[in-house]
Simulated scan of single mutants.
Amino acid sequence: MATLLFRLDNVPEEEADEVRRLLEQHGFDTFESRAGFWGLGVAAIWLRDKGDYEAAREALDTYQQGLAERVREERDALAERGEAPTLRRRLRHHPVRVLLVVLALSGVLTLTLLPFLGLIN
Rank of each mutant, 00 (worst) to 15 (best):
R57L: 09
E58C: 09
E58K: 11
L60V: 09
L60G: 04
L60H: 04
T62F: 04
Y63T: 03
Y63F: 13
Y63E: 01
Y63Q: 06
Q64C: 12
Q64V: 11
Q64G: 12
Q65M: 05
Q65H: 04
G66C: 06
G66W: 04
G66A: 03
L67W: 14
E69G: 12
E69L: 15
R70A: 12
R70I: 10
V71A: 15
R72F: 08
R72G: 07
R72L: 09
R72C: 07
E73W: 10
E73H: 12
R75D: 01
D76S: 13
A77Y: 07
A77P: 05
L78Q: 06
L78N: 04
A79N: 00
E80T: 11
E80D: 14
E80V: 11
R81P: 01
R81S: 09
R81I: 12
G82D: 03
G82F: 02
G82S: 05
G82C: 07
E83S: 04
E83R: 07
E83L: 10
T86P: 00
T86C: 00
L87F: 15
R88F: 13
R88N: 13
R88K: 15
R90I: 11
R90S: 12
L91N: 12
L91A: 15
H93D: 08
H93Q: 10
P95R: 01
P95L: 02
V96T: 11
R97S: 14
R97Y: 14
V98W: 01
L100Y: 13
V101G: 04
V101Q: 10
V102W: 09
L105R: 04
L105G: 06
L105D: 02
S106K: 07
G107I: 04
V108Y: 14
V108G: 10
L109C: 08
L109N: 10
L109Q: 06
T110F: 13
T110H: 13
T110A: 12
T110G: 10
T110K: 09
L111G: 07
T112V: 11
T112R: 05
L113C: 01
L113D: 02
L113S: 02
L114W: 10
L114F: 06
L114G: 03
L114E: 08
L114V: 07
P115G: 00
P115F: 00
F116Q: 05
F116Y: 06
G118I: 02
G118F: 02
L119T: 08
L119E: 05
L119A: 05
